[in-house]
Design a protein around this nucleic acid. Structure first.
Lengths: 316, 316
DNA sequence: CGGAGCCCTAAGCGATCGCTTATCGGGGCG
DNA sequence: CGCCCCGATAAGCGATCGCTTAGGGCTCCG
């Protein structure tokens, strides 16, 4: 019984699949499957069983889950405690949905570290679906993106979501775009577009856009560039595309109900269970400096890989 | 950071020495030292430092200790939970001071298992000094011996401690033995005689018996046999030597203040933190069957090795 | 100043961990 | 019925774990 094995089990149980757990841990699927198998044989219990679609916990697995989760949490506490006792800079592991990571998180965290002294910040990309597990298992401290249930969600940034396309796109000249006809055009999105827990994912779902109409780009900026090129329509975050719209490179479509008024949240564990650095970031989010940093539309930031394995194994 | 390493650290911290921790775990000293070194380098903190006589915790070590202890405890909980969920027989790990293990624990536990159905009981020998750590770290469920502070001590068996010797020993004919002169004779004891936390150890300490006057035998029975042979005086548990005294093989010395009225205790974690099997044993201790089993003076039980490594590593 | 404890390091060994790529089985769905 | 997705398994590899015996260094004590 190793910590790695318990971690693998907890993530499989929480995310409901070996594949998802492997992705969240940034390792291959057999790595997780193997850890699970080792734990199974050690404890002499299947722990999780395949059950049509997802995985279900055995009686033993149900009892093990909270205990294993606690152990994993305490292991994180242990490293934190030592870190802190040594006066080492606090560690703040931030995960964000791809759109947030690309345009908002970077300047925000840069401003935060500049202002709040010695903090070691890491930023990674995750889907909204895996964020709760990552936060609960202390693989991350803050999850930036849509509100997550079961966690403490602090409103972070209000933004507006519109639909944009290039000036030569057929829809660019239509005076009024009906929502229904949007499903018949190519959609150019980033990774969060195929994450049904994000706003864009929900939007595409609501519009019933078929999968073969969705083209995933490595970044929102790339999707907008393709849209400007006339290859299709794209979701656009108002203040970020404003400059391109002004210069005529993009057109904001007059879709009924848009732009959508939306909010991004900073999701964390409840007070007491989160680290001090996390609290400091939460407080920072309420300051004008934070707002200013997030509003700054520096779309030119270097885009990280598509889904980088963010989480180095905590216990080597 | 492995569970083994955390376990080693906790025991070193609790017992105040690498040597003691190694003994409690039944492994060699470098094994513990090595685990500690690995944890140290992983966390980048010395954790414990040598400080004249014992070991002292660094600031980081002090923070780590309660966390590591919790982790170890939860790991034990995990195996318990699975065991229980599978309907496997409960596990009850009993440790006792050598005298108790030799004469009282065996028949007691035999009667307990016979009466209380499917329970898997293991019995080991430990010094009273290491019992608290063993119980707190869930390496054992019950510690039989003297009352241990900080734990729940259930009175288990009243007994009387006398001083005995062979019929041809010079002291055997003295009408009144002064306590002071006992320090000038050879003492024949078992392992618990050199454990200053047991009654016999305290007795020898109070009598100021010098170390070179103490001869340690692998069992109380062996010490009594040597005493009967005239090789010296020995501590005698009244009801256990009664038969030998009756037959003239041993003489109970008229030392002032003896026989001492003493009590053995069953030490456990407080309610709620102990296993169900532990609770069952506690209840059993109040029954006439338990009393009867313990009173039965079957000194002929095969004596275990001097200090057997009782505790197999919990996580392989 | 020599000895005794106690802790640490060194060296070595077998087993396991943790990860990879490649392949096999099995259940749901068209 | 066959396809496809997902999980389990196989094989292999390097690193680490966990343990041993042997020996070196430190501190305390006589």
């Amino acid at each position: 019984m190793t910590l790695t094995q318990l971690e693998a089990f907890v993530l499989v149980a929480r995310l409901g699949s070996v594949k998802a757990a492997a992705r969240a841990l940034g390792v291959s699927e057999p790595a997780v499957s193997g850890a699970l198998a080792a734990l199974r044989s050690h404890l002499g219990d299947p722990l999780v069983r395949r059950a049509g679609g997802g995985m279900e916990l055995t009686a033993g697995g149900q009892r093990l889950l909270p205990i294993a989760s606690q152990i994993v949490n305490l292991a994180a506490d242990a490293t934190d405690a030592i870190r802190h006792a040594q006066g080492a800079p606090d560690l703040l592991r931030v995960v964000a949905t791809s759109a947030v990571a690309e345009h908002v998180a970077r300047p925000l965290l840069t401003a935060f570290t500049a202002r709040h002294g010695p903090v070691e910040v890491t930023l990674g990309v995750a889907t909204a679906g895996e964020m709760p597990a990552l936060l609960l298992e202390r693989l991350a401290d803050v999850g930036l993106g849509p509100r997550l249930s079961g966690l403490e969600a602090l409103p972070m940034m209000r933004h507006r979501l519109a639909v944009v396309c290039g000036p030569r796109h057929p829809l660019a000249r239509v005076p009024r775009v009906r929502a229904g006809c949007l499903a018949r055009h190519d959609w150019l999105v980033d990774a969060s577009g195929v994450d049904p827990a994000t706003e864009v994912g929900l939007l595409l779902e609501r519009l019933a856009v078929p999968e073969d109409r969705i083209r995933v780009f490595p970044s929102l900026a790339a999707a907008w560039a393709a849209a400007a090129d006339g290859q299709g329509v794209a979701p656009g975050i108002a203040h970020l595309v404003a400059q391109d719209v002004e210069r005529g490179r993009l057109v904001m479509l007059p879709v009924e109900g848009t732009p959508l008024d939306l909010m991004w949240f900073a999701n964390t564990l409840p007070a007491g269970r989160r680290s001090m650095a996390t609290d400091r970031l939460r407080r920072f989010l309420d300051t004008p400096q934070a707002m200013q940093a997030m509003r700054r539309a520096d779309a030119g930031v270097p885009v990280s890989r598509f889904r980088p394995p963010v989480y180095v194994t905590l216990w080597s």
